[in-house]
């Protein structure tokens, strides 16, 4: 399933809404999740999962080709943990 298919399904289920509004709704949801994480916030969607930000400490990396050491700065990365209900559903429970 891709974004446009998801939008189409929601549009088909809601014939009273304009397609372009459904597009805005779906885009708003994903954009809101990304914006929250960009602020360092967590997004917890019970039953589905939780999006959070993890900190990766600065480290000395190595260029695998040349073996040269390079300094890698501290950085923050997005992380998703599957919710219990969805995890159970994936395993037929």
């Amino acid at each position: 399933m891709i974004r446009s298919e998801l939008i189409q399904i929601i549009a088909d289920e809601n014939p009273h809404l304009y397609q372009r509004d459904v597009e805005r709704i779906v885009n708003t949801i994903f954009d809101e999740i990304t914006s929250a994480m960009a602020r360092g916030d967590r997004v917890e969607l019970r039953g589905f999962g939780a999006f959070s930000v993890k900190k990766r400490d600065a480290r000395i990396g190595r260029n695998p080709r040349t073996g040269e050491s390079v300094h890698v700065e501290e950085k923050h990365v997005p992380f998703f943990k599957t919710g219990k209900l969805l995890r159970d559903r994936l395993n037929g429970k």
Binding site: M1, R3, L6, I10, I25, I29, F30, L45, F80, R89
Partner: peptide, 26 residues
């Protein structure tokens, strides 16, 4: 209701074993 519906359709696709690909999200 619409937020719930989006999450439900994504979950259902995943339970069917489908990949869910949201461009510029993940």
């Amino acid at each position: 209701d619409l937020v719930e519906s989006v999450l439900t359709h994504m979950s259902d696709a995943l339970v069917r074993g489908e990949q869910v690909k949201i461009s510029s999200f993940g």
